[in-house]
Simulated assay, not measured.
Amino acid sequence: MSGQAAVLASGLKLATELVKVSAADLSGEALAWAVGEIEGVVLYLDGPRAYLTDWRVYYRRGGQVSYRIERYNPQENWTLGGPLADRHCKVFGHNKHVGANGEWRTFAYKDGPMLMRLAGGDSILVALCRAIVLLHRGETVLVPKELVSHG
C-alpha cells in the first residue's frame, strides 16, 4: 500500500472542492491549509466525527517506511511556525493602536524582485501566516469548503 493510500485508509481525506476566501480573513484550519499549500506540504482533512467537532488539517511527517500523521497548524504551533518566520519574516511587532487590545503585525518578504506584504493578527503566528499567504497568493486564496465555516 502506498504512503498516500495508507494515510487515506486511516480515515483522512484529500480536499475535493475549493472555495475562494479573502487572505486577510483567514484563520484557524483554513489559514493552516493556505500556508501548507504554499510550503508544498501534502495536506489531508479529518472530521467531524467521534471526538472531532470541526474539520482539521493534517500532514504526513517522516520518511517512506516510518512516518506519523500529525496536525498541520503553523498558525498556533511554534514548532511549525517558527521555521516559517526564519524563512519569510523581515520584521514583526505589536501595534497597540489597532483594535481594542492591539494587534500583532508581520512583514513577510521574498527576493527576486524584493516583495513585502504586511498582515495582522491576534498572535505573531497568525500575522506571519497571513503575511505569507498575501505575499505568495495575493488577496484571495483557495481553501477546502469544509474549512471555511469552521475558521
Rank of each mutant, 00 (worst) to 15 (best):
S2W: 08
S2T: 08
A6F: 07
L8K: 05
A9R: 09
S10Y: 07
S10G: 13
G11K: 04
G11V: 03
G11E: 05
L12Y: 00
K13C: 09
T16K: 07
T16R: 09
E17L: 03
L18C: 09
V19I: 07
V21H: 01
V21G: 00
S22T: 06
L26I: 06
S27D: 13
G28P: 03
A30L: 06
L31N: 01
V35K: 08
E37Q: 15
I38T: 05
G40F: 03
Y44E: 01
Y44F: 15
D46T: 06
Y51D: 14
T53V: 07
T53C: 09
D54L: 14
V57C: 02
V57D: 00
Y58H: 11
R61S: 12
G62A: 08
I69R: 02
Y72Q: 08
N73H: 14
E76F: 03
N77K: 10
G82P: 02
P83A: 09
L84P: 04
L84H: 11
R87D: 12
K90D: 15
G93Y: 13
H94D: 01
H94Q: 09
G99L: 09
G99A: 12
G99H: 13
A100W: 13
G102T: 14
E103F: 05
W104F: 14
W104A: 11
W104D: 04
R105F: 08
R105G: 05
R105C: 09
F107P: 02
Y109Q: 12
Y109A: 07
K110T: 13
G112K: 15
P113G: 07
R117K: 15
L118E: 12
A119C: 10
G121I: 05
S123F: 05
A127R: 01
A127Y: 01
A131L: 12
I132P: 03
V133R: 01
L135V: 06
H136S: 08
T140S: 14
L142I: 04
L142H: 11
P144G: 00
E146S: 02
H150S: 07
